[in-house]
Design a protein around this nucleic acid. Sequence first.
DNA 1: GAGTGCACCGTAAACGTTTCTGGCACGATC
DNA 2: GATCGTGCCAGAAACGTTTACGGTGCACTC
Lengths: 341, 341
Amino acid sequence: MKGIRRLAQHLDISIGTVSRALNGRSDVSEETRRRVIEAAAAMGYAPNQAGRSLRQGNTNAVGFMIELGSDASSNNDNFFLGVFDGVQSALARHHLDLVVLPCATDEDPTQYMQRMIARHLVDAMIISATHRRDTRIDVLQAARLPFITLGRSATEGEHPWIDLDFAGVARRAVDRLAAAGHRRIAVAVPSNDINLGFVFLDSYKSALTANGLPFDPALVFRVPSSEQGGYQLGHDICAMGDRPSAVVLNYELLALGLYRRLGESGLTPGRDLAVIGFREGPASRFLAPTLTCFRLSLRDLGIALGEALLASMPAYAEVYPQGIVRRIWPMELVPGESDRA
Amino acid sequence: MKGIRRLAQHLDISIGTVSRALNGRSDVSEETRRRVIEAAAAMGYAPNQAGRSLRQGNTNAVGFMIELGSDASSNNDNFFLGVFDGVQSALARHHLDLVVLPCATDEDPTQYMQRMIARHLVDAMIISATHRRDTRIDVLQAARLPFITLGRSATEGEHPWIDLDFAGVARRAVDRLAAAGHRRIAVAVPSNDINLGFVFLDSYKSALTANGLPFDPALVFRVPSSEQGGYQLGHDICAMGDRPSAVVLNYELLALGLYRRLGESGLTPGRDLAVIGFREGPASRFLAPTLTCFRLSLRDLGIALGEALLASMPAYAEVYPQGIVRRIWPMELVPGESDRA
DNA sequence: GAGTGCACCGTAAACGTTTCTGGCACGATC
DNA sequence: GATCGTGCCAGAAACGTTTACGGTGCACTC
């Protein structure tokens, strides 16, 4: 005898009553409820999730899919762990748990997503690093699974999203450099089709125009989102005859590689090339000269993601009457010495 | 009509036959199997995991619990993402999926573990950053859930583990520094009760002895495992009257903070203080002077973890007849310029 | 031509839970 | 005193799947 039956037999009541008592139903006497709860704690009983899911049709879990392979994930441990923490906190208030679903490098992300949906492992999903056209979104919509994306996409649909303020970062970076007199401002964008690259580049262009500067395609550097990409960026810049005087980065780790490559050519950020980095992170804080970049609270972002997702789940929509959330997440400029050139 | 019934009705055969066909049972004709598989693909059918788990008593998923709170995991330079990739690859060969279970900073890890076990969400578990006494292990053993730990622990038990070669790193670092003539070699160890700290310190002490050097408690620095900890370490060293001439680090990000703090005092690693770092990572590769540290393949480590876990699961033990794996994972010295002092 | 074995398939039970339905006991109401 | 309402609980159905069991038709054997 196992599970709820064992508990019921031990208390000499029916399993139905045990279930109602534990689930806070009204038609149970307070006395009985107390006995059940105490016995459950004493015997270490907790309802089997499979039985529960089968009957109720939901799993009380939310998935967060990450792609380990592509540098399109454009993120690292430190980014994700911070966000997870916030999401988990937001969900825990409703007894939902977060499970992270990592898609290995050797697996197709869309197929992986389909498998996870078919498994009915989670009630809702969060996906990050959205592509310009993201087939994962099509799959999620076809499955009618509530979801939110961290990052926008050109894929049609009415789904909720939260996106970092890439446009604002690019604009403020260009404004700042232009105000300091720079006229040849380069930009780094991802070499794949991740959506933020388009947003970043568009905003960069219009900021140039707004500052009366011409757009020069030779100043757009497509590099992988990694330190290697930053190194390559530095290499490409150093190899140019007519070097830009400043560069705006779109990914946090680019600054590391760029600094190193500049150093190898005897160049100093902030003196020979003005650099504005992207996200402030553990590594960027220790660069010399200090990096001008942008700050955000990962935990707050995670909480906002969790709450926006809850708002899109029918069972919680009344608690979070925000409708479909579409939100640009602000980032705060942290001045450093790297853009003093 | 949903699920397997819909598929069976569409094919005009019984649900039992559909199930047997999809699960590769023998007593179904090849012709029928083909039809079923094709129809399943066409209709996007995949068995509901809740029903499956309930019947079979397992979930075909493995959990990897990480503590978002502990400072050992707060900023770890893509350590986890690399390991996940390997684990996932190893498990995928047996149609098992990896789900990562992040324990939020505001939740007790042991309670979280108990909740996850009670949910019957996974068939086996991986835990990392084991403490000297780790109650999560007790909980796992009481639940009779197969598990493996990444890191050892003083907790009694016969469970499998894989541990990075902290002892070897400390010994080789001390040997190398002693051979270079250093006589006052400091060491950084974590300020919490994570197990690797004890291993690291013990090995450091015996290596001193082996090299005929005295042990000086004043040269043991207990600092948090973070860049902040490294900064604090640098601060403490700079404040000493009789400074050590070398220091051995136990955590990858310490080097970043240490470099910065030394710089603030006008000191240069490799000239004023010999530094041997721990794990080579994206950040450490960009330090100047280059850091002497140790290398390992995270993906291979993950694969080994996955296979060792499979070996401890009754259903897969015959495929992986390795018994209970207890293994020190080697790390390779990467010479740099930081220990030339 | 009855018996035997085999390949294939349908039927139904079982997994652990929640929830619907019904029913008992008791007090209140007219 | 019959009726009604209410508080509480037992019983059973249902969720979607796998699997033990039994049965049918066919080929083959003596």
